[in-house]
Design a protein around this nucleic acid. Structure first.
Length: 599
DNA sequence: CCCCCCCC
């Protein structure tokens, strides 16, 4: 098998000319920056005559390298690329090619060797001053009078003739080529996401800001507007619109705070110029989504950032809560999304997003960049400030889902991966050897309380909010907390109850901590504490009353080892009254499954 | 210059 490389194409491109879909061979690759989501790779490519390491892979193609699909010696067709002249510290200018689309014609393993005898392309091989090939900017009035100000707040040694030639040639730069070392550029970018205005006040001062995520075909970048720029640009910047943007400050992005694939971020300055691009936005890509089927979320790790699309099957009421760490009042709404994978997942919305959400018409919900969280063994998604949400977007996937849902999907049996464990019997739990794993196993069970142990079920706990340690009575009116290492005149009552639960297949000794025990006994811990101290028979009655009551239990099973003795510990996560409609539906379903009778 | 992204 022989491969026809596009001999000479590299020289044409390096000289700023265009070459349609050149065929080249990849001779090597190197990570040039970042890690994880911010990786960027440079390729050594050859056209058979020359080789050069000037090619950068657009980050959306990183996977091809990481998975090995794009291995050394691969022969590829470069379907789409842009080039950009970078000013290189001390070395004049340097052209880079950003590969936007690539077809692998032959994998490296089947080529197996370097084709031809390519010579390393050098600057000296360049012919004179080419016309750069870039997208023309259709003359918006955006570029300030060139050189009216001394360039650079970065302290770089800017060459003004290069600056003015870059400006006068009116071309746009790919976002992927932006760096702090080069501050004369214009990007043409679509707004993917825009934050609200946020204010801050700390030791260093106060102010306000908003930020936005921008992207073009080469990559994406976060941009932030502070104070004056916040006021100046907030109304102008609109999600999904395309803008020419120039004269921003670039700085290293703090990866701790961003999911965007860029090592840099932009800050608007007093010099920043932005103008909307109204004439031809079609050549800019739409927002890229990497949707995953809902039923695959269960296999992913907590903190994974995912793009999700689903029909809103239910939207819970808004809930208000106080964040323990900050004391901040929070509003949240949990929305259940379903898709044709047969999975359902809970997505948590926050703040104004939660307030304004209306799920009554079962909208298709898109969330780009939601975070997977795990709580009590079940996985769900949560919106971050950087998560982009859309309702009923004009997307092929959204229309397909709408069709699926409206034509039977709404009635499909779904598995809710955010539901707290599957429905099991005690026999199931035993035969599956639940609880042998590191984290324990969670399951739901319909069962009867057969016995409650009232002795020591109430204790005097440390009054500190976070501390529930049992106090030592000092017999002097003070109680000592060993954990806090201090004494208190007061305490709070908490519950720690042992009980027996039975279902038709077996029984189990279980432990219920405070809230779960309160739910079982239908009394607050403080009241039981009062009964214990002042009304012993009332106390005993409270524990008797609950015997032979049926609950829907959520259990956590975990095998624990104490003094060489292992036993299964089952903790009641919560106990709820039986929803008979729901319980009967499950019963009927399992009868159908067991008997094979479909009605 | 922000950097919060939460809760059970």
């Amino acid at each position: 098998m022989s491969y026809n490389l596009s001999e000479g194409s590299l020289e044409v491109i390096m000289n700023g000319g265009h070459y349609d879909k050149p065929i080249m061979q990849v001779l090597g690759s190197k990570k040039i920056q970042g890690s994880g989501a911010n990786e960027r790779f440079r390729l050594l490519v050859s056209d058979g005559r020359h080789s050069h390491s000037f090619a950068m892979l657009a980050t959306q193609l990183n996977d091809k390298l990481i998975t090995g699909e794009l291995s050394d010696y691969s022969v590829v067709q470069i379907d789409r690329f842009v080039t950009s002249l970078l000013k290189n510290t001390g070395k004049g200018e340097k052209r880079v090619m950003i590969i936007l689309d690539i077809t692998i014609i032959a994998p490296g393993t089947s080529v197996g060797k370097k084709l031809g005898n390519p010579q390393t392309w050098t600057e000296e091989s360049a012919t004179s001053n080419p016309a750069p090939v870039m997208q023309p900017v259709p003359k918006p009035n955006l570029i300030p009078t060139p050189m009216s100000k001394p360039a650079s707040t970065t302290g770089m040694n800017m060459n003004t003739s290069i600056n003015s030639s870059l400006l006068s040639s009116q071309m746009t730069h790919p976002i992927a080529s932006l760096s702090p070392y080069q501050n004369k550029w214009v990007i043409r970018a679509r707004v993917m996401n825009k934050s609200g205005i946020r204010t801050w006040s700390n030791a260093k001062g106060e102010g306000k800001l908003f930020s936005m995520d921008l992207f073009d075909e080469s990559g994406e970048i976060r941009a932030t507007a502070f104070k004056n720029e916040c006021d100046k640009f907030y109304d102008m910047i609109q999600v999904d619109k395309v803008y020419y943007i120039s004269r921003c400050q670039l700085k290293t992005a703090n990866k701790q705070f961003t999911n965007l694939k860029n090592d840099y971020e932009m800050t608007f300055t007093a010099d920043t110029v932005i103008s909307e691009c109204t004439d031809d936005s079609s050549s800019l890509p739409d927002i890229k989504y990497d949707f995953i089927p809902i039923n695959t979320i269960a296999d992913k790790s907590p903190d994974t950032i995912v793009d999700i699309i689903g029909v809103c099957k239910y939207a819970a009421d808004i809930q208000e809560l106080t964040a323990k760490s900050t004391g901040k009042l929070l509003k949240k709404r949990e929305v259940t999304l379903v898709d044709s994978s047969g999975g359902a997942v809970s997505l948590t919305l926050w703040g104004s997003e939660a307030e304004k959400f209306d799920g009554s018409s079962n909208p298709v919900v898109v969330a780009k960049g939601a975070r997977l969280t795990e709580f009590n063994g079940s996985k769900s998604l949560s919106c971050l400030a950087s998560t982009m949400m859309r309702l009923n977007p004009d997307l092929a996937e959204a229309h397909k889902l709408r069709g699926w849902y409206d034509n039977g999907g709404a009635d499909m049996d779904i598995v809710n991966i955010s539901a707290n464990g599957e429905w099991l019997t005690f026999r199931d739990a035993e035969s599956r050897q639940l609880g042998s794993g590191e984290k324990g196993d969670y399951y739901s069970l319909l069962g009867v309380i057969t016995f409650t142990f009232s002795d020591n079920a109430v204790y005097k706990a440390c009054p500190q909010d976070q501390c529930n340690k049992k106090l030592v009575d000092q017999d002097n009116g003070l109680y000592r907390c060993e954990k806090c290492n201090r004494e208190y005149p007061n305490f709070k009552h908490r519950l720690l109850m042992t009980a027996s639960v039975s279902d038709p297949t077996g029984d189990q000794r279980v432990t219920a901590f405070n809230e779960a025990a309160e739910a079982v006994l239908a009394r607050p811990a403080a009241e039981l504490g009062q009964l214990l101290d002042y009304d012993k028979s009332g106390y005993a009655q409270a524990f008797d009353d609950v015997k032979f009551k049926t609950f829907v239990f959520k259990f956590r099973a975990k095998v624990e080892t104490h003094n060489d003795e292992t036993r299964l510990k089952t903790i009641v996560m919560n106990a709820q009254p039986v929803d008979y409609k729901d319980a009967n539906a499950r019963l009927i379903k399992s009868i159908k499954t067991i008997t094979g009778i479909q009605v």
